[in-house]
Design a protein around this nucleic acid. Structure first.
Length: 501
RNA sequence: GGUCCUGUGGCCGAGUGGCUAGGCAGAGCUCUGCAAAAGCUCCCACAGCGGUUCGAAUCCGCUCGGGACCUCCA
């Protein structure tokens, strides 16, 4: 069964065919590390982590490149605008690379919390200034870039004129029409250097107070926002690669500009499939810095934010994101996160139990309908992933299976209701989908083994007191543990199990 | 203003021209010393108004509502 993904470039689902199978090149726009990542940032990184995992599962050899934007205009978060002018104060207090280091580490920590696999290559903009300058030189040499006042701009109008004839007009990705852009774009400052207001910067001259600056053929400055992705994608994935991903808000202008730059340099569209995840909203509005409505990841994990009624574990957040399809908006609320938290708990408990079972023998199914149904649900998991990475449907199907697992656990059904081979199939496939593809895991605490030993001891005492009808003691053990967030459960067979809440 | 997306049950969210996703919450039942967990059952929604169709939440039009982007901004 082929994998189909929605290609923003063609606005339809297409069968995914790598340029050089089994190799797949995927580039995803990473974070700007001038501040801490927030919930909205988590979505693309989790979404494309699942894409990465699924491609690996499919047997592709994937090179996943996700950049770190650490060049550009930097200011410490929370500082008022005047600080920018106070050059001396900034120089004394703020070393850009110190900021970059801090937020890069924080970002890596968050990615790890989410159980995101590290990308194959994580290039930084500052580490590729040379490549960017070379690319700009090439664009100028080809007549699509021009220098003005120490800055270099891309000539969008010329590009559009020439490439429209090749059916690759500027706006090919976002469906924009350049003439309309010229008519409707609002007035902005510092536009007088440009030939046309639609032109974008390839290189910016650094003002005196700007602290991140590099030497270039056009003087001291810093690269334009878009060029780093073009330069690094070309360097590590080649002139044409398979997938380019990122948030929908980057489609225009960022990805459009990338296409223009790369096309001029490499004479072909850079990526075949463009994938864009939708936004996370809060109260119906995009979560973003400009709306001042972000919840940072550290705040989310600690519950330390006015909008939050509690802390949410990274896995809860991951699961919350995977419960929707990546192309739809996803609305944040405490209610929704709490629903995900409970759902994930139920899912993982059922799953963990099944995983610990061993099914031996060659028994045939007594309940053929159930057997068939289980196989169908499992089989559909692949279909759903193949249909544009529909994790929402995958999760839904897993929830069809969970009650069957719990029924076996609670002996509402017997093991021979379903063929041994089916149980083994369900077991192995759930490991693949839940752990390898969705990337979900049980959060394990420290010193877990000792803690388990202590709990087992308490369980033993509780069993004894129950046997002696000493319910005061048995209840005390259960209730006190409950207060500490450890929930004891009496099982049907007289044993006791527990979960950490 | 321009371009585009969208409106699903209390909440979050899938989805297809006809076969009522799933989760959470709520109700009942079973199990059980009690509790929790679990299982079973119930809660049959698709903004409004027209149209196409044997049949539309799913296609078309209009109305109302929400949102995204519109180039130096990370």
């Amino acid at each position: 069964m082929p994998l189909k993904i929605y290609n923003s470039l063609t606005r339809q689902k297409e069968i995914f065919e790598p340029i050089n199978a089994p190799y797949v090149g995927m580039y995803v726009c990473g974070p700007t590390v001038s501040g801490e990542s927030h919930l909205g940032h988590a979505r693309p990184f989790i979404t494309f982590d699942v894409v990465f995992r699924y491609l690996l599962h499919k047997g592709y050899k994937v090179r996943y490149v996700r950049n770190i934007t650490d060049a550009g205009h930097f200011e410490e978060e929370g500082k008022v605008a005047e600080d920018k002018i106070a050059t001396k104060a900034i120089l004394e207090k703020l070393e850009p690379m110190e900021l970059v280091q801090k937020y890069t580490q924080l970002y890596h920590w968050a990615m790890d919390q989410f159980n995101n696999l590290p990308p194959s290559i994580e290039p930084t903009a500052t580490g590729h200034i040379v490549e960017q300058i070379e690319m700009i030189k090439k664009i100028i040499a080809d007549g699509y870039g021009y220098e003005a006042n120490g800055s270099v701009y891309f000539d969008v109008v010329k590009y559009n004129d020439v490439y429209s004839k090749k059916n690759q007009p500027y706006g090919i990705l976002s469906g924009r029409n350049l003439e309309e852009q010229l008519d409707t774009t609002r007035e902005l400052e510092n536009q007088e250097e440009k030939k046309n207001k639609v032109d974008f910067a390839l290189w910016k001259k650094a003002p005196a107070e700007h602290i991140m600056r590099w030497q270039s053929p056009w003087g001291e400055g810093f690269p334009g926002w878009h060029i780093e992705c073009s330069a690094m994608a070309t360097k590590y994935l080649g002139k044409k690669f398979d997938i380019h991903g990122g948030g929908m808000d980057l489609q225009f202008p960022h990805h459009e500009c990338e296409i223009a730059q790369s096309t001029v340099c490499n004479h072909e569209l850079p990526a075949r499939y463009w994938m864009h995840n939708n936004m996370i909203t809060i109260n119906g509005r995009k979560m973003g810095k400009s709306y001042n409505n972000v919840i940072k990841l550290s705040e989310l994990f600690t519950g330390n934010h006015p909008e939050l009624t509690q802390a949410y574990a990274p896995m809860t957040v991951r699961f919350f994101i995977l419960q929707s399809q990546y192309r739809g908006t996803l609305d944040f609320s405490n209610e929704a996160l709490q629903a995900s938290e409970k759902a994930l708990k139920r899912l993982m408990e059922g799953y963990e139990w099944l995983k610990a079972q061993s099914f031996v023998g060659e028994a045939k199914a007594k309940d053929e309908a159930l057997d068939l149904q289980l196989n169908k649900w499992i089989g559909e998991l692949t279909e759903f992933m193949d249909d544009d990475i529909n994790t929402a449907k995958v999760v839904a199907n897993i929830f069809e299976i969970i009650p069957v697992i719990n029924s076996l656990k609670d002996k509402h059904i017997t093991q021979d209701a379903v063929a041994t081979s089916t149980w083994n199939h369900v077991q192995s496939q759930l490991v693949v989908f839940i752990e390898s593809i969705l990337g979900l895991k049980v959060e394990a605490g420290a010193n877990l083994e000792q803690l388990k030993g202590v709990i087992d001891l308490l369980i033993e005492i509780r069993k004894e007191s129950k046997a002696n009808k000493d319910f005061a003691t048995s209840d005390k053990i259960r209730n006190q543990l409950m207060n500490m967030g450890i929930q004891l459960k009496d099982e049907k067979d007289g044993s006791m199990s527990y979960t950490f809440s």
